[in-house]
């Protein structure tokens, strides 16, 4: 039995571009904030499809897509493509009556492990 009044902890799936967030995650490994977070490593944020995000949301998770800052994509515009996809996912969530905050997108570079911890902290906040 769950304790009354306490919301069950939501699983957090983080898509990490291996050129930025994945490196930051390696640097931040061991930080308690990262505990229990599922990291999915992708070659570029542009690899993340809408269905990948929706599938995880359907499974009850919240999703955080982490990309390189705009104009810093190693593949030029992968991050911008994904930003648009995340907006479509938000529309889907809105349509379904689910809070749009279940999916978030943030931009950070490989040298910002503290920012990674920070955005994960934000994303975990219900």
């Amino acid at each position: 039995m769950k304790k009354p009044g306490k919301r069950p902890k939501q699983r957090l799936v983080v898509f990490c571009c291996e050129n930025s967030a994945a490196k930051a995650a390696e640097s931040a490994a061991g930080d308690p904030m990262l505990k229990g977070v599922e990291f999915v490593r992708v070659p570029c944020a542009g690899r993340v499809e809408i269905r990948h995000i929706l599938k995880r949301i359907e499974a009850g998770a919240a999703v955080l897509a982490l990309a390189c800052p705009l104009d810093n994509c190693k593949y030029i515009h992968g991050n911008r493509r994904t930003l648009k996809r995340v907006d479509r996912v938000k529309q889907v969530l809105k349509d379904a009556g689910i809070e749009e905050g279940r999916v978030r997108m943030e931009f950070l570079s490989s040298v910002d492990p503290h920012k990674l911890v920070n955005v994960i902290k934000e994303a975990k906040r219900p």
Partner: peptide
């Protein structure tokens, strides 16, 4: 195919919500 998947997701999520 992608639009189908997206719509299906939206329907499942909406159904569950309702």
């Amino acid at each position: 195919e992608k639009e189908v998947a997206m719509l299906a997701s939206a329907m499942r999520l909406a159904n569950r919500k309702a």
